[in-house]
Simulated scan of single mutants.
Amino acid sequence: MLIIILMGDKMIKSMTGFGRGEANENGFHVLTEIKSLNHRFLDLSVKLPKVLSGLEDRIRLKIGESIKRGRVEINISLEAYEKSLDSLELNYDLLNQYINIIHDLKKSVNLTDDIKLSDILSIPGIIDVKSVNVDIDNVWTVVEKALDMSIKNLIDMRVLEGIKLKDDIINRLDMLSGIIDKIEERGPAVINEYKKKLETRINELIGGELDQNRFLTEVAVMADKTSISEEITRLRSHISQFRFSLDSSMPVGKKLDFLTQEMNREANTIGSKSTDLIIINGVIELKDQIEKIREQVQNIE
C-alpha cells in the first residue's frame, strides 16, 4: 500500500477525497482540512480566519499546484498558544453618547435608577472584538506545513479511490472488447443470410436463372450499406487510447469523458446500420457498459 501511495503522481486520481493536516510552530497551532468533490473544473472555496485573509492567494496557488480538477473546500483554523489573536476594546464615544442620553431621560422623566455595569455591557457595539496584528510571513510558515500535510493526505485518498476506478474501468473495457468481437464475427453471417434470402425471394418471384451480375451487385450494395468495419476499428482504437490514458501521469478525466462520447457514437452508428437481432442486442450491451464507464469517468481528475 505504501508503494502505491508513493507512486500517486503516476496514477489516475479520483476527484473525491479528504485530507487533514496540523502544525505547531512559532507560537501558533494551525489545522487545515481539505475536502474535494466532482467538478468539471477546479473550483476552490477557502475559509480562514480574518487575520489570515492576506494568505488566501498563496493558499489558492498552493492547492492549484497539486489539484487540477474538482470542487475543493479548504477550512483553516488558527490558534496562538502564547497570546490571544483577539483583543477587546471599549467604544468610549458610543458609551458617552448612551450615558448622556440616559442622563437626559432621567432628568426629563424624573427617573432615579442608577446606571449599572450590566446595563453598559448589554449595549450593542459597546465592546469591539478586534484581531491583533501578526507577522503574516511568520504564520505562513506554519500554515504551509499544515497545508502540505492535508494536501498529501487528500491526494493519497484520491489515488486509492483512483485505483478502484481504474480496475473497474479496465474490467468494463475488457467486456467491451469481447462484445465487439462477437459483433464483428456476426457481420459476415448477416451478409450470407441476406444473400440466401434475396436469392430465394427472387426465385419465388421470377423463377429461372438469376442475373448473377445484378444479384451480386445488389448484395455488394447491401454489404456496403451495412458494413460496420470502420466503426469496429474506431471502437477498438478508442479502447486502446482509453487504456493508455489510464496509465498517464496527467489529469485525463476530460479526455476519457470525450472518448466515452465517441464510443457511444460508434455504438449508435452500428445499431442504426443493422437489423440483425444479435448485433442489435450486442449494441445494447455496448451502450450499457459505455454508460457505466462514463459514470466512473465523471469521478476522475
Rank of each mutant, 00 (worst) to 15 (best):
E144D: 14
S118A: 04
D128Q: 14
L111M: 15
T269N: 07
R58I: 07
G64P: 01
L2F: 13
S150Q: 07
F258S: 04
L216S: 13
I34S: 02
R69C: 08
L165Q: 01
G282R: 05
L44I: 13
E25T: 13
T141I: 11
V129N: 12
S249C: 02
G125Q: 02
L95E: 03
L121V: 14
M250G: 11
D57G: 10
N91L: 00
N26G: 04
D93E: 14
I136L: 14
I290G: 00
K68I: 13
A223C: 08
N110I: 12
T233V: 10
I278T: 04
R201T: 11
K68H: 14
K225Q: 10
L198W: 01
N192K: 11
I101Y: 11
S53Y: 07
V190L: 07
Q296P: 01
G21N: 03
R58L: 09
M7I: 02
E209Q: 15
I228K: 01
I278D: 02
T226Q: 08
I123E: 06
F18C: 00
Q97E: 08
A146L: 06
R60K: 15
K152L: 12
I12F: 02
L198E: 03
E65G: 07
K197T: 13
V46D: 01
G253T: 06
N100I: 00
S150L: 02
G17H: 06
R186Y: 08
A267R: 06
P124A: 04
A220T: 08
S131P: 03
K107Q: 11
I74L: 14
E230K: 14
M7L: 12
G70M: 00
P251D: 05
L6C: 12
H39I: 09
S14A: 12
G178R: 05
E65I: 11
P124C: 03
I120T: 10
L31W: 09
Q289I: 03
E79W: 00
S177M: 10
L44P: 02
S274V: 05
L90Q: 00
I127R: 04
R172L: 02
L210G: 07
E22M: 09
V109P: 00
I67F: 06
K47R: 14
N91A: 06
I123T: 05
K62E: 11
K145S: 14
I115S: 07
F28Y: 12
T200K: 10
L147V: 04
I293A: 01
G8V: 01
N264G: 14
N281Y: 00
N91I: 06
L259P: 04
S14D: 08
M149Q: 15
R186M: 06
R234F: 12
M263A: 04
V190H: 04
V51F: 05
I127Y: 01
E25S: 03
I206W: 09
S118N: 09
G253C: 07
E301S: 10
K10F: 11
G178Y: 05
I239E: 12
S36F: 02
K196G: 11
E199D: 13
D288S: 09
G17L: 00
G208W: 15
I239V: 14
V51N: 03
E266D: 09
A80Y: 04
